[in-house]
Design a protein around this nucleic acid. Structure first.
Length: 206
DNA sequence: AGAATGATCCTCT
DNA sequence: GAGGATCATTCTC
């Protein structure tokens, strides 16, 4: 029951975004609700970069190059690091990302899967199901289990009621680099990372 | 204004 | 493994 949750300094989020995606494995997501606290350990992430055709902050030119793309939806991607970028997709799901890099550089890490540690009863209620391996094993699942919606877009992740804090680092032999999921461009890049053998990882193939 | 798409999930076969 | 749900956002004309 220790209250010692430690955020990162801003410099953590100014390192290369692919390294941050790797480094966020093992980090904890702490969600405070009126009914209690939810805690989970990040086990799968993906990096999205400013020159990356799959990134929301990027437009692909007909000639094949890329430029930054500002829109209403992705505005927080151009904001300061250490904040949440939350958007709605497929008519059903919120996606939760961590913004990296200085202002005006649209890069982020998508949190794809979490291992639930605390508050599993509340997560089953929020998810409307009781299979613990299905609670948080996907980007849309974990936002529902943690009650994360678009009101958190732009939220400072060092502040309650939603915090991203340090956990136990995951050693290299346990980290699997893989291709990203559900995108139509940039599919060859190994910018997804997950914890080997962890049952909450959304997809273990490549 | 209308069409297409989407960093997904669930159910069914 | 395939297909439908479902709608906000973005793109195209």
């Amino acid at each position: 029951m220790s209250e010692e949750f430690t955020c990162w300094e801003e410099t953590f989020f100014l390192r290369p975004t692919v390294k941050i995606a790797r480094g966020l494995l093992g980090a904890l997501l702490v969600r405070d609700l009126p009914e209690g606290r939810l805690v989970g350990r990040i086990v799968e992430t993906e990096a999205y970069l400013q020159n990356d055709p799959a990134c929301h902050g990027v437009r692909v030119l007909p000639e094949g190059g890329t430029v930054h793309r500002h829109t209403a939806r992705n505005a927080t991607m151009f904001g300061p690091p250490g904040r949440a970028y939350v958007y709605f997709t497929y008519g059903n799901h919120f996606m939760f990302n961590v913004i990296t890099q200085p202002e005006d550089v649209p890069e982020a890490v998508l949190i794809r899967a979490i291992e639930p540690l605390e508050g599993l009863d509340m997560m089953t209620r929020l998810r409307g199901m009781d299979d613990i391996y299905a609670l948080t094993s996907g980007p849309g699942k974990l936002t529902k289990a943690f009650a994360i919606d678009r009101t958190f877009d732009g939220h400072d992740l060092c502040q309650p009621p939603l915090r991203l804090v340090q956990g136990s680092p995951v050693p290299d032999p346990q980290v699997v680099p893989a291709t990203r999921i559900g995108i139509s461009r940039g599919t060859d890049l190994l910018w997804r990372f997950y914890v080997r053998e962890n049952p909450w990882v959304s997809r273990t193939s490549r």
